[in-house]
């Protein structure tokens, strides 16, 4: 039986905040085997894909008043390596980049340059002005994993990249 950590983002949204960063933080802090019970004022479709890529399946149901409850349950995928099976916790970032205020595509160039200098399993943190849409396919192509989201104040996008073994 999976234990679920509950996160209610309705107050954040009512207060005009951006819950994505908070959701990602909560997901990152989950213990192995733990799931997330999310309460939201709408059906959070974009999260299904975002958490799906991190190995969560979802079950959603409307709980009245237009609100939704979604259970994100971790799957023990056959592809999970022993290191990943120990937990979905990522090591503390070794590399920090502040790419705010740079002209696109400079932030992407800097992230990809830094990524090349790192070892498999290491994590980099980068601060960006916006979601790096064009960077994600490049990271995936090189076999790296990423997580990201806006901080609660909605002005800083915090990207974490974990270096993959092969690319």
């Amino acid at each position: 039986m999976t234990d679920y950590v509950e996160l209610d983002v309705r107050p954040i949204l009512t207060g005009g905040g951006e819950p994505f960063g908070r959701i990602m933080e909560t997901v990152a802090s989950l213990k192995p085997g733990e799931g997330l019970r999310l309460l939201a004022p709408f059906r959070p479709v974009p999260l299904f894909g975002a958490l799906g890529s991190k190995g969560f399946t979802h079950q959603d149901r409307e709980i009245g008043g237009g609100d939704w409850e979604v259970l994100f349950t971790p799957t023990a995928g056959p592809a999970a390596s022993p290191a990943e099976a120990v937990g979905d916790r990522w090591p503390t970032p070794l590399m920090h980049l502040d790419n705010r205020g740079l002209m696109p595509p400079e932030p992407m160039v800097k992230v990809l340059g830094a990524v090349e200098a790192m070892q498999a399993g290491e994590v980099m943190e980068a601060l960006l002005d916006r979601e790096p849409t064009f960077l994600f396919p490049q990271l995936t192509q090189r076999g790296h994993e990423w997580r990201g989201g806006f901080d609660p104040d909605g002005t800083v996008y915090r990207l974490l990249v974990r270096i993959g073994t092969g690319s």
Partner: peptide, 13 residues
């Protein structure tokens, strides 16, 4: 931009 991303994206860094 699209051309740059397409041609040089895979070897950036």
């Amino acid at each position: 931009f699209m051309t740059w991303l397409e041609c040089y994206g895979p070897i950036l860094g």
